[in-house]
């Protein structure tokens, strides 16, 4: 793939964004295919996440200059998508209107479980991590 370069030899920002989003889409698609083909228990997008992290790690290892366009186009695209990740699940989240009576019937178990399990998870994870890393250099 050839990316158009400007005077400084860096790809143009808008183009980089388009290339970056396309790369993310390709990894997502590959994840979906693998998920379906080998019945991997992870959702397709999560398989794509693992593949992308692996590909970036490999690109970092082998000749950095050759693979520069890859990391440099994925990074801005992922920043844009992750900065506004919240917007992307508003439509899906609005389906709670169809669950209104479930919420009404279950609000006591929901509130109790949500508050207790979240704080428990927070405390357990923080405490164990603290025990292992305290006194260790960063």
């Amino acid at each position: 793939m050839r990316v158009e370069m400007d005077a400084k030899g860096a790809a143009k920002p808008a183009l980089r964004l388009i290339v970056g989003v396309s790369i993310l889409l390709v990894f997502g698609l590959a994840g979906n295919r693998l998920h379906a083909r080998y019945s991997i228990p992870l959702p397709g997008a999560v398989v794509g996440l693992v593949l992308l992290a692996g590909a970036l790690a490999i690109a970092r290892r082998i000749s950095a200059s050759r693979m520069k366009w890859f990391a440099e186009s994925v990074a801005p695209a992922s920043r844009v998508l992750l900065n506004h990740l919240g917007l992307l699940f508003v439509p899906a989240g609005c389906a709670v209107v169809t669950e209104a009576d479930v919420l009404r019937r279950n609000w006591i178990p929901i509130v109790t479980a949500l508050v207790v399990s979240t704080t428990l998870g927070l405390a357990v994870c923080g405490w164990i991590m603290h025990r292992f890393v305290s006194g260790q250099e960063e």
Partner: peptide, 8 residues
């Protein structure tokens, strides 16, 4: 989907 992949 691409946003989830981007978490990588």
């Amino acid at each position: 989907a691409p946003a989830t992949v981007a978490l990588g």
